[in-house]
Design a protein around this nucleic acid. Sequence first.
DNA 1: CATTATATGGAGGCACCCCTCCGTTTAGCA
DNA 2: TGCTAAACGGAGGGGTGCCTCCATATAATG
Lengths: 190, 190
Amino acid sequence: MTDAPLVSAAVARPLRADARRNFEAVLAAARDAFATNGPDASLEDIARRAGVGIATLYRNFPTRASLIEAVYFDEVDALCRAAGQFGELPPWEALIAWLRRFVDYATTKRALLDGLNRDSDMFRNAKYAMFEAGKPLLARAQASGDARADVEISDVLFLISGLLSVSYANDEQRERVLGLALDGIRPPRP
Amino acid sequence: MTDAPLVSAAVARPLRADARRNFEAVLAAARDAFATNGPDASLEDIARRAGVGIATLYRNFPTRASLIEAVYFDEVDALCRAAGQFGELPPWEALIAWLRRFVDYATTKRALLDGLNRDSDMFRNAKYAMFEAGKPLLARAQASGDARADVEISDVLFLISGLLSVSYANDEQRERVLGLALDGIRPPRP
DNA sequence: CATTATATGGAGGCACCCCTCCGTTTAGCA
DNA sequence: TGCTAAACGGAGGGGTGCCTCCATATAATG
């Protein structure tokens, strides 16, 4: 989060100190609100939570979509960075570790995606960035024979992200289903 | 659709001819609207589409939730009935055929689930009914060695329903991911 | 400290949705 | 065909969220 974002530089931050502070406050409140109330969360409520007037919110994010995008954007960026951190783990474990990180992120993501224009440039960029981040991990697992050769990183991510949108009876079942899906990625034993 | 519903008799249909007609019209319009606009679709709009006054909608469905439930209910009921139709197919094909039917249904379902109280009795009943409908199909596939023995029907349905909430690049990819998931259900070859 | 460009907040107009109330219409029945 | 209970429609009051406008406050600069 300290360096320039990986995904794009689409969000130009304002200059004055208070403006910058408010920008961050709104973003944080929005992340919270969208996760809690879905993509239709009241903008006035978000401003209130951020301790900011509604006009300030609008000045930074002229449309609801731009706010959703900004939040989504931050999340994706953090996730892409995380992909580099698993270099020391064995190939399959590294892949799993990142996917697990992906699981966490996707919980928030889901609420956002519902309200996001999937055809926007931003979304396309984010998806591309995420695929690029995950590719080396998958390639490594394929090279070591831990993952079947005929899957793409996009397949894997679609597979996983789908599973997360379901509300399971309990965590145990969620793990079981997740395991089931991951078994689909492992090569068939001959 | 001609017999009494399998899931429960929760939805009492009105008696007079015009009332019955309007009831069905609202239900159909609602199914449409929820699929298109999600669970927040305007009730006044639904009434308009059904060619019915707003009051008539409210008379039949006092709350938004009751309308959502009624739609959901119809879908589940139809799906449960469908489970019986695949008796002549080989075990694995029968399971797949029903799951494919499930795929179609789940597209509508998703919009509904977002707006549905997952803890309601209705929802519990529906889930139970669906599991019961699918169980024999899975059991048959397990008996013939086409599906691994350590999965439950609920695992399978959760797995599949998750996959559908994702918007894929194209149908081909959707099929590939679906195939991936189904591979997770087949027994590991020794 | 004074100046000024920048940023702020919240009132208010607009639009939409929810839901109830009640005068009118109609199906069912004899 | 005439009666009556059942059903109907839509106007309208209440509420909420969206977004703009502008008088006020404040960070930055010399």
